[in-house]
């Protein structure tokens, strides 16, 4: 049982089997063992998607505190495609036990107090609507005011179409939020996980001081299918994967999930060192 259970509502009872198959190497894996291994395939290092809850537990200590849960989604456009947006929201909330696609938590990463903003792909594709924007914006304000480092762990298909233009505006809003951190010299680190696309990628994800990514994560602005349709040719192997972006100079580090916590700690302890001890280099 996870330490954060009291913060997250119980997920709907799932008839989850105890076994799963690695999509990469096709090995049959025992679920509890996989979870203990941070959802990384022990055979081929395939990184299974992690829920927001699992992610928080993997990075922060026990006494973490959930923030901004009082901000909840609405349906401003009364959007309806094959299904009303309201129903989609309800369904997503039931399926994930989350109130929205972004969870903001404040807690300790070893001995550094940080704020962590984590996305969950199972909540309507980790898409960014007004609530994701507002929660992130408030996290930025909080971090700027209290000079706390902000880490965001991202997985998203992009802006949430069901909120129309308002979701597009969240790109501007979150980018302005990052500005508060830049102004105050507060570290802002982003971890891009599979997948990080569209409006989220082109706003707060790529505004990190340091941008990390999990191995083989799909990262980009336009989706590979859209690109293929536009240019009418096949995309090269490994295109838009984390390693490809590293080679092109678009991200700083590709980090294995097992080393993520240590890497973040290492980086943050250096980035906050001078401030913590009230020193200046000059």
């Amino acid at each position: 049982m996870g330490i954060l259970d009291r913060f997250f509502k119980k997920k709907k009872e799932e008839k989850e089997s105890l076994w799963t198959k690695c999509p990469e190497c096709k090995t049959i894996l025992y679920m509890p063992e996989l979870s203990a291994n941070l959802k990384v395939c022990p055979k081929c290092n395939y990184h299974f998607p992690m829920s927001a809850k699992e992610r928080v537990e993997s990075l922060l200590d026990e006494n973490a505190q959930l923030l901004f849960e009082n901000i909840l989604p609405k349906d401003p456009l009364r959007f309806k495609d094959t299904k009303p947006y309201k129903d989609r929201l309800k369904q997503a909330q039931e399926d994930t036990g989350l109130s929205e696609a972004l969870v903001v938590v404040r807690g300790n990463l070893k001995d550094i107090h940080v704020v962590l903003a984590v996305m969950d792909f199972n909540f309507i594709g980790g898409s960014m609507g007004s609530v994701v924007g507002e929660r992130f914006y408030r996290a930025c304000k909080l971090c700027a005011n209290e000079e706390l480092p902000l880490i965001s762990v991202i997985t998203s298909g992009g802006a949430r179409m069901q909120e129309g233009i308002l979701s597009l505006m969240q790109m501007a809003k979150t980018s302005i939020g990052v500005g508060f951190l830049r102004e105050k010299g507060v570290p802002y680190i982003t971890v891009l996980t599979d997948p990080t696309m569209g409006g989220v990628s082109a706003s707060f994800a790529f505004l990190g001081d340091v941008i990390m990514a999990e191995p083989k994560s799909l990262i980009g602005f336009a989706g590979p299918r859209v690109i293929e349709q536009t240019i009418k040719q096949q995309l090269p192997e490994g295109f838009q994967r984390a390693e490809f972006l590293l080679e092109k100079g678009m991200i700083d580090i590709v980090v294995h999930r097992k080393e993520l916590k240590d890497t973040l700690y290492k980086l943050l302890s250096m980035a906050t060192y001078w401030k913590r001890f009230n020193l200046t280099a000059l």
């Binding site: 980018s175 990628s201 505004l207 980009g220 602005f221 336009a222 536009t230 240019i231 678009m250």
Partner: peptide
């Protein structure tokens, strides 16, 4: 949406422009 655009950081360029 093209290969070169992604290679040269379409996301980063847009994000930085917003900022």
């Amino acid at each position: 949406p093209g290969i070169g655009a992604e290679e040269r950081g379409q996301s980063e360029a847009i994000a930085e422009s917003l900022y």
